[in-house]
């Protein structure tokens, strides 16, 4: 028994005695100090597609848009306009969406984004409703611009 205590105690001492080894950043890019003004905010995009891209930021957590990139939490939306709903082989759609019979025209996309579970009850898209018509229009324009 005593043997074991001694080992533990020595182990603890050895750890305590280890010299410090500080590993500094390999690269540190300092852009600004906190509290300093961030500079002029980028002007709100006037171009509809650019505005749509900005508004899409929160959607991008789930939806990839790069051609050929694997679907993630949601399906890849590259080329979604004109596609049949539930068409990607690499994404596990809800039965509701697969059986919806929808084809994603810009009008249908707009209606879906306005109220996903209203448009397709049972969809697994649990968030992402966009109530503002202008923002929806921009997001749809952005999606329409994404082609392989």
């Amino acid at each position: 028994m005593m043997h074991r205590f001694a080992l533990v105690a020595i182990g603890a001492l050895a750890l305590a005695a280890c010299g410090s080894k500080v590993e500094p950043p390999v690269e540190q890019i300092v852009l600004r100090e906190p509290g300093q003004p961030a500079g002029a905010a980028p002007a709100a995009a006037t171009d509809l597609v650019a505005a749509g891209k900005a508004a899409f930021a929160v959607c991008a957590t789930c939806h990839a848009v790069e051609a050929g990139k694997a679907s993630g939490i949601g399906p890849n939306l590259n080329g979604v306009v004109g596609r049949k709903a539930g068409a990607l082989a690499d994404f596990g759609y809800s039965a509701a969406l697969k059986q919806s019979g929808l084809t994603w025209t810009e009008t249908e996309l707009d209606a879906f984004i306005a109220n996903p579970s209203g448009k397709v009850p049972g969809t697994s898209m649990a968030a992402g409703a966009v109530s503002d018509a202008e923002r929806r229009k921009a997001i749809v324009a952005y999606l329409a611009s994404l082609t392989p």
């Binding site: 590993e23 890019i29 906190p34 961030a38 980028p42």
Partner: peptide, 11 residues
């Protein structure tokens, strides 16, 4: 990008 203060490569 907006709001960014530092970018670090810590190895």
């Amino acid at each position: 990008m907006p709001g960014v203060l530092q970018i670090l490569n810590m190895g």
